[in-house]
Amino acid sequence: MANIKIIQGDFQQRLKLQFAPGIKAGFPSPADDYSHETLDFNRDLILNPEATFYGKVEGDSMIEAGICDGDIAVIDRSIEPRDGDVVVGYINDEFTIKYLDLRHRKDGYIELRPANNDFKPIRIREDDDFEVWGVVVWTIKNWRKY
């Protein structure tokens, strides 16, 4: 069974100003000394906002990695792709999301690997015009439909 640690978060607007405890009338709250900025996904999970883009996953090619149809992928273009990263590439006029496999670099090719046995890896040769468009840093799944 998975352990779940619950962290209380506050997802209101960023940069909420705290009241200065000194000017409050009445008895000061004993929690004031422990106040700190609230958790904020935009601030803490998106480290390079100017390089961050979003994409919607379509299809099941990454299902065994837990990336499913309808998930939203958070893509950071500014980080250097490494072997094993989940990346976004552009192949045959469409964006694709796959594992990046750099193990065969010395053999003159790299692969984009799906996480689903029904799909074949995409082999990219050295002289193919291919670039990793961005590295997937998070995926977002919606469990409770509003």
């Binding site: 979003y54 919607k56 996953v57 379509e58």
Partner: peptide, 9 residues
Amino acid sequence: RWSDIITLK
């Protein structure tokens, strides 16, 4: 626009 984000296959 959320409706326009890129599609990843």
